[in-house]
């Protein structure tokens, strides 16, 4: 990631960004850059500070301290120019419900200083990209959740901004619509710097070139999705599924496999799945796949002529890394923090 994007210009620069609501610190000295061509996935449990960070970067909230700039424009001192370089889909895709999508997009076009033919062309393109043609004349209030989200997306990309920030862009969409939105993001990605927040981890694999996990207002991981999955204890693990009838024999044989530190076993229907974890710590932390373990298991299965149902090496599991890194959330300490968060929000 760094090698390829290293030369591209920095579009979003965030330094020591902090937001306090009363005694509660929602975002604590967060800093990162996003370059042109990058799609940054912003992950974290609810209340981790994802939306608060986005609200500060888009100029809706004023940071308590720290700086953020969009295309070189500071969001606090040069707010309007920063906002001009930016398309933003706020959480929940709010819009003016009494307007039709067409009226709404015309309003945004005027605010974005697009007039006449420029405005019509921009609206046409945004409508086509988000497939809104069918509902252009219906009040937004009467639209389904999926269409409302797409109206928000159309609004965000209307002026073809160099930076796109989207808070849960695929929330509430059905699988087909999700697929379309991801395709849209992938299509725009080369020319833009894109930040999306999401709960859906598969989405990170699907569209993000980089993932950033935040927990309780702090960055706990930053890297490519592959590098993050490599931190999973499942990285380079091998799972072998055989009929339960021969489970005893397989278990015995697997005892002898070199390089396996630990073995887990799960029965499902008539099949039993064995998962072998590699012993080598370097292999587990490293980014390249280690194939020795799976080779050994495959050779064993061939030699014994087992009726193998499935055999595969695990790249790692992002959800497990996510849970591991943000697990602190469920600890009792956090109960006070969350209460602080709730009162902080209501006071805000």
């Amino acid at each position: 990631m760094q090698g390829k994007a290293g030369a591209a210009e920095v579009m979003v620069s965030i330094e020591a960004l902090t937001k306090r609501f009363g005694p509660f610190t929602a975002v604590d000295h967060i800093g990162f850059d996003v370059r042109r061509g990058e799609v940054l996935g912003f992950l974290g449990p609810n209340g981790a500070g994802k939306s608060t960070t986005m609200k500060m970067v888009t100029g809706f909230l004023t940071p308590s301290s720290g700086t953020a700039s969009i295309c070189g424009h500071d969001v606090v001192n040069d707010t309007l120019n920063a906002q001009r370089s930016l398309g933003y889909l706020p959480e929940g895709a709010p819009a003016y419900g009494d307007m039709t999508p067409l009226g709404f997009l015309r309003f945004i076009a005027r605010i974005r200083r697009l007039f006449g033919r420029d405005a019509e062309r921009a609206i046409e393109e945004a409508v086509a990209a988000t497939e809104l043609e069918a509902v252009l004349e219906q009040p937004i209030d009467t639209l389904s959740k999926g269409f409302r989200r797409r109206v928000g997306l159309a609004q965000a990309i209307l002026h073809n901004p160099p930076v796109l920030i989207m808070d849960e862009p695929t929330d509430g969409l059905d699988p087909n619509q999700k697929f379309e939105v991801r395709k849209l993001i992938a299509r725009m990605a080369p020319e833009k710097a894109i930040i999306i927040s999401t709960h859906i981890l598969e989405e990170v694999d699907a569209i993000c070139s980089r993932a950033l996990i935040i927990d309780r207002g702090e960055i706990v991981a930053d890297g490519t999705p592959a590098a993050l999955t490599a931190r999973s204890r499942y990285h380079n693990a091998v799972s072998l599924t055989v009929p339960s009838a021969i489970a005893g024999e397989v278990r015995e044989a697997l005892e002898g496999v070199q390089g396996a530190a630990k073995r887990e076993e799960a029965q499902r229907g008539d099949d039993t799945t064995f998962t072998l974890f590699p012993r080598d710590e370097v292999g587990q932390q490293g980014m390249e796949s280690d194939t020795t373990l799976i080779d050994a298991v495959a050779a064993l299965a061939r030699a014994r002529n087992w009726p193998v149902r499935a055999l595969h090496g695990e790249p790692g599991r992002l959800d497990e890394v996510f849970r591991h890194l943000t697990r602190a959330d469920t600890e009792p300490v956090e109960a006070g923090g969350l209460k602080g968060s709730a009162s902080g929000r209501s006071a805000a």
Binding site: G59, F60, Q83, R84, P90, P94, I111, R112
Partner: peptide
């Protein structure tokens, strides 16, 4: 929530 939309426009 539309205020967030309005105030994040230039």
């Amino acid at each position: 929530g539309s205020i967030e939309l309005l105030l994040s426009q230039p």
